[in-house]
Every structure is written in C-alpha cells, then in structure tokens.
Design a protein around this nucleic acid. Structure first.
Lengths: 115, 115
DNA sequence: CTGATATACAACCATTAGGTTTCATATTAG
DNA sequence: CTAATATGAAACCTAATGGTTGTATATCAG
C-alpha cells in the first residue's frame, strides 16, 4: 500500500487558519503584494486605499499575525516587509492537497493496470 | 525592465476571497482532504466531527461556494467530491506572490552585476 | 521649542460567521 | 404503506471582522 505522508510543515491548525484568513481579503492581498515588491511605510500603504489609516493599520496587523509581513522601525516610520516564507508554507500545504487527489488517481491507475 | 506578468487565472477578487476564506478553517480543510481522497456523503462526513450535522452541512456549503467541492446526488444521499482545480488556482496565486518576491531579488542581482 | 507627521490604540457599530435547535421534505427499507 | 434515514433550510445566539472616530505618543523639520 502506498502511503502519502504529507510533508511536515510544523504548522498548527491555528497558524494555517491565520494565513488563509489573512489572504482572504483583496486589500490585504494587495498590501502583501506591495510589501513583497519592496518595503513601504504604513502611511504610504494606507494612501493607496479608500479607507482610513486605522483600517489599513488593522489589515497590516492581521497580516503580521499570520507571519505574512514584518514591521521594521525606521525613525518615526514602520516599514512593512513581506515574508515569502509564510507564503511558501501555504503553497506547500496546497501542494499536499493536490498530491492527495493525485494519489487517488494513482490508486485507480494501479487498479486498472492490475499489477 | 523586466516585467513579471502574473498568469491570468481569470479569478475575481471575490472568488479568491471565497477560496482562501473556505480554507481558513481546520474542519473545512479536513472535509476538503477527505473529499479529495474519495467521495463521501454528508452524513458520513458529519460523523467525523464533534458538531451537529447542520454545522457540517454549512461548512460544506462554504466549500461548495468556493468551488472547492461539488455535490452529486446518489439516491437520497449527496456525495461530496473535492475539486482539485480550485486548489490549483489558489496554489498558482501563491506562486505568483513568490515570484513577485523573487523578482525583487532578481532586480537586486541585476543592480549588483551592473549589466 | 513648536507644529506637523507617523504610528498606536481604544471604543464603538454593523455585518458576517459558526454554531445551535427545530421543522420540512425526499428517499429507501421492510 | 410506514418508519427510518438523508438532506435542506429557517430562526436564533454569540463572537469575530472590518470599518469608523477620537485620543495619545513619538519623531522630525525649521
């Protein structure tokens, strides 16, 4: 019997919840994207959206709580930097699901070829 | 200048929201996993969790709304089948973010090699 | 020093989410 | 036919989310 052991990502359910939850909002995905392109201050980020500074600040807090971005002080500013490692973890998890499905197909193949 | 055009997934913000939102819950991820391994009825799925049938039914509705699973009638049962295509879309989107970050590195490389 | 800018954070509000219980309907078993 | 099973869906409750305004604090510019 073929066993598909999912790669151990050392992620708790809670951590995975937070990552996907953080990505489930278009504004946060855009902030994430900008923070991956290059560091930006919270004010600069906030200027890009039609909502208050405080609202953007909260979105950044959500991203930070998921480990998707980090804050770095620079004078009176806080620069927001995207963390590709967290993204990679989420992607790896999705790969696992795809392999589970692929596994089902492989088993079907095995049955058909009847080896 | 190198432009990184993200692969067009033909996904609206709303669709992406729903996919990530649906994945942001451990129970739903487990239902998803089981539905990818093989079709199961709603009752069978519900028996695996410490919550009411109606609660599990709602989770399945969320997954279905995101296109992550589909329902197929079989007599009085509804079989839930995982849809790997939706998973693939989400993964591809995360790949895009990783490439954006990688792009930043490439640009830095270009600066350093000064060509 | 003073005023302007950048951030943090609390209190509040409306909507959504995740759960429950209850009832209705469809299908199968006997 | 009748009882049991499988699903659907409404009404309800509580907590979390996503937004607001308002206030406080830190830092920079001149």
């Amino acid at each position: 019997m073929v066993v598909y052991q999912h790669s151990d990502l050392n992620l708790t359910d809670d951590e995975v919840d937070r990552i996907f939850r953080a990505l489930a909002d278009a504004t946060r995905r855009d902030i994430m994207r900008r923070a991956l392109v290059g560091e930006e201050s919270i004010s600069d980020l906030a200027n890009g959206y039609d909502m208050t500074f405080a609202a953007v600040q909260k979105h950044i807090t959500v991203l930070e709580g998921a480990g998707l971005v980090t804050k770095h002080r620079s004078g009176r500013e806080r620069l927001i930097r995207g963390n590709p490692e967290a993204i990679r973890k989420a992607r790896t998890l999705l790969n696992t699901y795809e392999r589970i499905w692929q596994g089902r197909i492989d088993q079907l193949d095995a049955l058909l070829t009847d080896d």
